[in-house]
Amino acid sequence: MSTLNIGGSQLDASWFLLLSAVLFGLGAIGVLVRRNPLVILISIELMLNAANLTLVAFARQLENIEGQLFALMSMTVAAAEAVVGLAILVDIFRVRDAEDIDDLSELRG
């Protein structure tokens, strides 16, 4: 295992990966368990965040800025995803109350 020198103290790189994995897992549980479409979107954002953490951690570990660049790009994508997802949700909620994701299984409004 490798350590990172941060502000004079040594931090193991795998800790960051572990945190990322836990967050990713929580997000995955959220997507699978929760029924409210809004919360599912939120959980997806959580998973994206966890992935970003990995990217930034590896960027530091490999001393390569590209990881950070990729994190930035994924943030952009997340923003785009959130915007479109919310727009769809608002559109659906206008027509009917969708408190359960299963209510949205049909494409017809």
């Binding site: 941060i6 931090l11 979107l41 954002e45 970003n52 930034v56 994190a71 997340a78 959130a82 915007v83």
Partner: peptide
């Protein structure tokens, strides 16, 4: 901590400040 200052700022400005506000 990981030395990603710019990503830090963007994380708060874009993610916390804009995307989550949208939610």
């Amino acid at each position: 901590l990981l030395g990603a200052q710019f990503v830090f700022a963007v994380q708060i400005i874009v993610y916390a400040g804009a995307v989550m506000v949208l939610f």
